Computed example of a mutant assay.
Amino acid sequence: MVKYLGLHETLDLHELITFKNLCLTKSTTMGALVQDPELKTILTNDAAAGQQHIQQLQQLLTNREAQ
């Protein structure tokens, strides 16, 4: 079994990380501006989930390159 990522797979992961970073930035920025407590909670939860997703994608990228 091949233990490394192909070039297209690496580029796809980089694109996903970039997109998730953009979403995280937007959720965090809008969360600071919103006044509705329910919407603020939704944006806070989205930001937390986004951070976790970014960490998982980065881990996948670094673990596969190291092997």
Rank of each mutant, 00 (worst) to 15 (best):
M1K: 11
M1T: 12
V2P: 15
V2M: 10
K3I: 04
Y4N: 08
L7I: 09
L7R: 09
L7W: 09
L7G: 02
L7H: 11
H8K: 13
E9M: 04
T10N: 01
L11R: 11
L11W: 05
D12E: 10
L13R: 01
L13D: 01
E15I: 06
E15G: 05
T18A: 13
F19R: 15
F19D: 15
F19Y: 15
F19S: 15
N21I: 06
N21E: 15
N21P: 06
L22F: 11
L22T: 12
L22S: 14
C23F: 07
L24E: 03
L24Y: 06
L24T: 06
T25R: 13
T28M: 07
T29Q: 09
T29G: 02
M30S: 10
M30H: 08
G31T: 04
A32F: 09
A32T: 14
A32P: 01
L33D: 09
Q35A: 14
P37R: 05
P37N: 05
E38C: 04
E38D: 14
K40M: 07
K40I: 03
T41P: 03
T41E: 15
T41K: 15
L43S: 04
T44R: 13
N45G: 12
N45Y: 02
D46I: 12
A47Y: 00
A48V: 10
A48I: 12
A49G: 04
A49I: 02
G50L: 08
G50I: 01
G50Y: 00
G50M: 06
Q51L: 07
Q52W: 03
H53P: 00
I54H: 00
Q55A: 14
Q55R: 03
L57W: 00
L60I: 00
L60A: 05
T62W: 00
T62A: 07
T62Q: 11
T62G: 00
T62C: 03
T62D: 07
N63V: 05
N63D: 11
R64F: 03
R64P: 02
E65A: 06
E65I: 06
E65L: 08
A66W: 00
A66H: 10
Q67G: 12
Q67W: 07
